[in-house]
Amino acid sequence: MTNNTVITSDNPLNNTQQKNLIALLDVLIPASDDELMPSAAGLDFIPYLHLHSAETIPILLQLLDHLEPQFCTLSPALRQPIVEQLSNTQAAQFRTIVMQVFACYYQTEAAQKGIGLEAGAPFPRGNDIEAGDLSLLDPVIAGDHGYRKA
């Protein structure tokens, strides 16, 4: 695949690659049937990689090079077997990119809300958790668990 637009340092993808990336992301994590979980197609994936894993951008480019230009025009059902094939023929690169997609996806507000979390940084919000029932210790206290005398 050859580039048909200028590649900037921020977005190394040409238009076709960009469209294919969006289509690929949608296959990797499609929206859930109940629509609570968004599709990964909406991710700002390239900026995310720039920030957290710039070394994987060339791997993504290599992977996209294996997709035909018309991949993005196919129906989801037709894209699926192509991506499956890609996962077999380019196994290592594919795994690397899937992991980055998962990481990027679950750090978005939409995905966090979708899984029932309050979106945002953990601090200073914090969480409440159960103190727990310390009477569960009764059998331990009653049992034979003394320390070894030395």
């Binding site: 296959v27 990797l28 994590i29 499609p30 859930s32 979980m37 699926q80 991506v83 996962s87 795994r95 899937v98 992991m99 997609v101 998962f102 990481a103 996806y105 679950y106 750090q107 995905a111 966090q112 899984i115 979390l117």
Partner: peptide, 30 residues
């Protein structure tokens, strides 16, 4: 683990796939 940790561990162990079964598998584990 947190959401990303869950997704990555699940993917590495073959329990959380990419694709249409992703959300159900993630929900089962997270």
């Amino acid at each position: 683990a947190g959401p990303v940790g869950t997704a990555l561990q699940g993917y590495a162990s073959g329990n959380i796939p990419w694709g249409s079964k992703h959300h159900a598998a993630f929900k089962k584990r997270f």
